[in-house]
Amino acid sequence: METILGIDYPTWWFLVIGGLFSGYAILDGFDFGAGAWHLFFKKELNRRIALNAVGPVWDGNEVWLVIGGGALFAGFPVMYATLFSSLYIPFMLFLIFIIFRAISIEFRGKEEMLWWRRLWDVSYSISSIMLAFLLGVVLGNVLQGFAIGENYQYTGSGFFEFLNPYAIMTGVTTLALFMAHGAIYLLLKTEGAMFDQLTNLLQKGMIFFMVSFAITTLYTLLYIPHLSDDFKSAPILFAVPVLTFLSIANVPRLASKKNYKLAFFFSSLTISLLLVLVAVELYPNLLFSTVDPKYSLDVYEAASSERSLGIMLLFVAIGGPLVLGYTFFVYRTFRGKVKLDDHSY
């Protein structure tokens, strides 16, 4: 088997996808989080500022989803096909809400009527909340495993099997995480009374996250033993949860010092570390079958051929630095507090 730096191609691609999903979760995470808080702002001006804080970037952030999905399709087609067809309903709902959210952002500012703006405010906020929740629900199902049978076919039944207690908990946790992350992002983008309100909201968001994260962690340790296998075999990996906890704890510490730039960095890092934690829990598996472990999919079974992966890794090596370069350029251009002008929403 071909390797680069002693790591085989499927594992490299697993890492690439982890990186892409981290990028996506950090970027669309603050975007969904800001949307989830939207109805907490009562004044029209504040709602416009909140919307325009994500205005220049939300579209681009969603492109990360397209890239992440494409990378999954490209590198692990078997996993991609099995996951998406098994969790049909949550993925369809995700699509519907992502469209609704885009519609709300575009529609809202186009008429002056109060009822019009309220309508799209509510729709924007609900779709943001649902999107964060559904991402967590999918993650919960992946971690817990679902009914995969012969020939990668889903053998579960019913419309709402995806909505099990564990998935609901991971969904709520993801929402809470994004809300805290979004609040910090908005703090970087606002001033005055709105800024003061957000410091208060950030506290609530962090408490919400800590509580739901604690419950989810406990649930995982008690009921989903297969996720801790890797930790037992390689205790060094305990460094990951330890670092995660440290990173989480650092966010309120920095927030109380009013160092929101660094707090945003650490809430981004927390999201990455949580995904590293997920990666460690999963690897080398990608999907767990609750029917029979022999139907579970690992990276080798799910991966494209080495030739295909080799080409794709080359693309990433060439294109990755470019992507980081112009993402940095965009965020630099729009750094600082929101200024409304005639190009705003």
């Binding site: 579209d59 992507v323 993402t327 251009t333």
Partner: peptide, 8 residues
């Protein structure tokens, strides 16, 4: 990535 990067 090129499109989304420069779009903003």
């Amino acid at each position: 990535a090129l499109e989304s990067g420069f779009l903003g």
